[in-house]
């Protein structure tokens, strides 16, 4: 177990270093010139050249990357080109909003997905089952910006139940969480359905029924806990979906998280910020996958860590 953990952690660190190299290389070949952006349109060629020199943009790729990498080891993500602030501070300031949104999304997707999957499994083969699974397909096929704009239109513009956008209170959180959760709800309902069907097929369920327990008790006390655990253990993997989703959802709802930070930085070619957000997302994704893998054998002893 410890050996496995150490090996996985080392692997994860290598992957993250790889991510940082690839991102840096990508942004290095970007045709836009950050120095020109900082200097402004009216600046002379000389000023621009000075800024380039100052930022070390004339150095070869390896040198630039190495400097960045050494900084990373000290937790230094560099400075934003345009805002003259530490990227680490910018990301840290935005992170709580994003984490809150993800938490809301997890609640929404589990509530919707597990319920749908459970009902579908219990009504297996009926029209209810088919209908619910079509709904789950709609969930995974719906573009998040459309879901978001529609929810905004119906519940904020028309009905006025929720604010149109922004951040601060619980009611601000509801629509963005729902939007981010719809995709996951689609996946969870399908996983929950098949997990529940698997469990209901087991001998111990038949035994429980045979000894005269009520169906309700068998389903909720005996089957549900076993069916739900492996599904919930997947939450770690969701982080990848979320990290893509937040860029869209945060821009639709004006949610001040790292998705919007990245999006604004991309439009202004603020490379250190883009790097910072990409790395933070990659760390989250890698940790999420690691978590899912490590948790799995505790939930299902048949799974062995290799």
């Amino acid at each position: 177990m410890i050996g496995y953990l150490v090996r996985r952690l080392l692997q994860s660190i290598l992957i993250l270093i790889g991510v940082s190299i690839v991102t840096y290389a990508l942004l290095y070949v970007l045709p836009a010139d950050p120095a020109r952006q900082i200097a402004g349109r009216s600046a002379t060629a000389e000023t621009v050249a000075n800024i380039r020199e100052q930022l070390g943009l004339n150095d070869p790729f390896i040198v630039q990357y190495w400097r960045y990498f050494l900084g990373l080891l000290h937790g230094d993500f560099g400075r934003s080109y345009l805002q003259r602030t530490e990227v680490a501070d910018l990301v840290a300031a935005r992170l709580p909003a994003t984490l809150l949104l993800m938490l809301g999304a997890i609640v929404c997707e589990l509530a919707m997905g597990l319920t749908m999957g459970l009902v579908a499994a219990l009504r297996r083969g009926t029209n209810t089952d088919q209908g619910l699974m079509v709904v789950s397909f709609v969930g995974v096929s719906a573009p998040q910006f459309v879901t978001g704009l529609l929810l905004l239109y119906v519940f904020a513009v028309r009905l006025g139940w929720f604010p149109i956008g922004g951040y601060g209170t619980f009611s601000h959180l509801v629509l963005p969480s729902l939007t981010l959760g719809v995709l996951g709800a689609g996946w969870y309902s399908r996983m929950m359905r098949s997990s529940m069907i698997d469990v209901l097929r087991q001998d111990y369920i038949r035994t429980a029924r045979a000894k005269g327990l009520k169906r309700f008790v068998v389903v909720f006390r005996h089957a549900l806990p076993n069916a739900i655990l492996p599904v919930i253990a997947m939450i770690g993997i969701d982080i990848g979906l979320f990290m893509s989703g937040i860029v869209v959802v945060e821009s639709v709802f004006g949610w001040p998280g790292i998705g919007q930070l990245a999006w604004q930085a991309i439009q202004r070619v603020d490379i250190p910020i883009i790097m910072g957000v990409t790395l933070v997302s990659a760390i989250a994704i890698v940790l999420g996958n690691l978590l899912a893998d490590v948790v799995a054998p505790f939930i299902d002893p048949r799974i062995k860590l290799r």
């Binding site: 990848g240 990290m243 893509s244 869209v248 991309i266 996958n289």
Partner: peptide
Amino acid sequence: MAFPALLLAICLAAV
């Protein structure tokens, strides 16, 4: 797999 797909696509599209 460790890249957030959309962020990577946006970076590439911006390049």
